[in-house]
Each structure stands twice: as structure tokens, then as C-alpha cells.
Simulated assay, not measured.
Amino acid sequence: MNLLNLRTAFIAAPLLVLAYGVIRILDGLDGERGPGLAWTTGHLAFVAALLLFVPIYWRLRRMAGSGALATATATAGTIGVAALVGQFGIDLVVGFMSADHAAMSVLFDQVQSVPGVSFAVYDGLPFLFYVGQLALVTQLAAQRRVKLWTPVLVLADLALPFVDKDLIPLGALCLLVSFVPLARASAAVAPARPAAVYA
């Protein structure tokens, strides 16, 4: 991903999360979420955001000095992305296969009853996405490469959905504010060597 596209990713990822949060609220106005166009569109928006976080994590790693800690947290974040893509992929398939919300619940129960699935895509590995994101930005703040309020806003973005998922749009705005200076700062990082994948 070239530098211009990478800077765009820092802005596009929070905006896609914002879109997901707004669509999710609209989808629930009738008291149920999914299946249907809103369910599918919202989930696709979030999957697109997740995919953008992969190069973002590895750029943050490079900005933090590419050391062992930065590499470990970028790797953790990437594993979390993969887990969440799996989760949202399941959501999309269930939505396509179901005639109504009740049918979705039955399919979700069947999927989550498979050994290992719950940890891999619901209750375990997805949290690495959040841990990696906060850890990388905190490292940058500790190195004074970003303002101290940046990890605070990232933490707000990560915490608000756990308070109430309807707060996802507000969290996404916090993330956008924190990512704008990161997008600018990423331009000051030396270009990656050809052998690097995402650095």
C-alpha cells in the first residue's frame, strides 16, 4: 500500500466504523437486527474497516521503531483482525441463509456450539484487535511521537461499545480525531524496505 493510500486508510477506517454503527442503529429501529440489506451493508462496511487496520497496524509498528514490543502488538492486532473478519463473515453468511431473525438465532447457536469457534471468533482472539490497537498508540505516546490524548481517544473508541453498542458512532468519531494526526505523522516515516510486508 503506497503512502497516499495508507494515509487515506487512517481516515477511511474510522469512517467505515462510523457507517457500521449508524447502519446498525437504523437496522434495530424495528426491534430486530437482520437479516436484510442493512445487516449486510453494515457488516460489509465493518469488514472493509478491519482490512484497512492491517496496514495501519504495521505502519504504527514502524512509527514506534519496529522493535520486539511493537512487532508483537502489531501481530496481535492482525490476529484480532482475522478473528473479527471470521466473526463478521459468519454473520454475513447467517444473514444470507436466514429468512428472518428467529432463523438467524438458530444458525448462530449451531455455529457457536462448534468446539473452538467461540474462542476463535467471539470470546477470545477478537480482543487482540483492541489490545493491539491501544498498545501501539500507547507506545507512540510514550515515545512522544503522538500527543498524550491520542491513546485516551483510542481507549474511548474501544470502551464505548462495551458500555452500549449504540455508542459505536461516537467511538468512531473519537477514533477519527485520534487517527488524523497519526495519518500526518505516518508520512514522516521513512519508506519501507522492499523486503517488509506492511512496514
Rank of each mutant, 00 (worst) to 15 (best):
P126W: 00
A99G: 15
D164P: 10
Q139C: 07
L167E: 07
P169Y: 12
F129T: 03
V117Y: 00
I90A: 15
A103W: 02
R144L: 07
L136Q: 08
S118R: 12
V152S: 08
P161V: 10
S105P: 00
D166L: 14
V163L: 13
I168T: 14
D166N: 14
F162H: 14
K165C: 00
L92A: 11
A135H: 00
L173C: 13
P126A: 07
P169S: 13
A141F: 09
V131R: 00
A159N: 06
L158I: 15
W149S: 09
A135S: 13
F129K: 09
Y130W: 11
F96P: 04
Y122I: 09
L173H: 12
L158D: 05
L107Q: 08
D166G: 15
D109C: 02
A135C: 09
A156M: 10
M97D: 05
Q139A: 14
P126G: 08
C174I: 06
L134P: 06
P169L: 11
A159L: 13
V121P: 00
L92W: 01
F119H: 04
L160Q: 03
M97S: 14
M97E: 04
T150W: 04
I168E: 05
D123G: 10
D164G: 10
A103C: 06
L125S: 07
D91W: 00
T138I: 10
L125Y: 01
R144Q: 13
D166R: 15
L128Y: 01
P169V: 12
L170D: 03
M97P: 00
A142H: 13
L92S: 12
V154Y: 08
A103F: 06
A142L: 15
C174A: 15
Q112I: 01
S118N: 14
L148F: 12
G171D: 04
P169I: 10
L175M: 13
P126R: 04
L134Y: 14
V137A: 09
Q139D: 08
V111D: 00
S98A: 15
Q110A: 13
Q133T: 15
I168Q: 08
L92R: 06
I90L: 11
V114D: 00
G116Y: 03
L170N: 03
F127D: 03
W149F: 13
V152Y: 08
S118A: 10
P161G: 12
G171R: 02
L125R: 02
A141E: 02
Y130N: 05
G124V: 08
G95K: 00
D157F: 14
L128R: 00
L136T: 07
V154S: 05
G132Y: 02
Q139P: 09
A156N: 06
D109A: 12
V117P: 04
S113L: 01
K165W: 07
L173S: 12
Y130C: 03
F119R: 05
L134A: 15
T138R: 11
R144H: 13
P126N: 06
A135T: 07
F162A: 13
V152M: 09
Q143R: 15
G95W: 00
V93A: 12
A159Y: 04
K165P: 06
A156W: 01
L107H: 01
A159V: 13
V163H: 05
V93K: 01
L148D: 07
S98H: 03
S98D: 02
K147W: 07
L160C: 08
P169M: 11
V93P: 01
M97C: 10
G95L: 02
